[in-house]
Amino acid sequence: MSEPQSLTILGATGSIGTSTLDLVGRLPERFVLSSVTAGTNAKALAAIARRHGAQFAAVADPAAYEELKAQLSGSGIACGAGPAALVEAAERPADRVMAAIVGTAGLAPTLAALRRGTTVLLANKECLVSAGDCFMRTAREHEAEVLPVDSEHSAIFQALEGRNRDCVETATLTASGGPFRTASLERLEQVTAAEAVCHPNWSMGAKVSVDSATLMNKGLELIEAHHLFALSAEQLRVLVHPESVVHGLVSYTDGSVLAQLAPPDMRTPIALSLAWPARMTTPVPRLDLARLAKLTFEEPDLVRFPALAHALAALGAGGGAPTVLNAANEVAVAEFLVGRLRFLDIARIVGAVLDRAAASPLTAPAELDDALELDRWARMLTREAIARAPESA
Rank of each mutant, 00 (worst) to 15 (best):
T382R: 02
A358L: 10
V102G: 13
P148K: 00
V102E: 01
R30E: 14
A309S: 15
L239Y: 04
A387T: 08
A317N: 07
S2C: 01
A144I: 09
V245N: 04
L341T: 02
V210Q: 06
E169Y: 02
A123P: 12
A314Q: 01
P200N: 13
A327S: 13
H310A: 04
E152K: 00
F31Y: 14
A387G: 04
G106V: 00
M136R: 13
I77W: 00
E384Y: 03
L302F: 08
E141G: 14
A70D: 06
A271G: 14
E91A: 15
L362T: 02
V146I: 15
L249I: 15
D345M: 02
E161G: 11
H247R: 00
R304P: 07
N41G: 09
G39R: 07
E299Q: 11
D301C: 10
G132R: 04
D345C: 09
L261K: 03
R51V: 01
V149L: 09
L27A: 14
E141N: 13
S251T: 09
T281E: 14
A183Q: 07
T214R: 08
V102M: 09
G320T: 00
R187V: 13
V120A: 04
R96A: 14
A378C: 08
L289S: 09
L21W: 07
S203D: 03
G177M: 10
R383S: 00
V146R: 12
D345P: 07
V87T: 10
D133T: 12
R51F: 03
L374Q: 01
V168G: 07
W202E: 13
P283I: 04
E384H: 10
P277Y: 05
T40A: 10
V197W: 11
L128I: 15
T172G: 11
K218N: 08
A357K: 05
H247E: 01
V324C: 11
V97H: 11
P4G: 01
T174N: 12
H227D: 00
L258I: 15
A105G: 15
E29F: 08
L312S: 09
V246F: 01
R116M: 03
Q235P: 12
A64H: 08
E145Q: 13
D301F: 03
E88I: 02
R140Q: 14
L362Y: 05
L344Q: 09
G17C: 05
F31S: 08
G132A: 09
A313M: 07
H226K: 04
Q5C: 14
S392W: 02
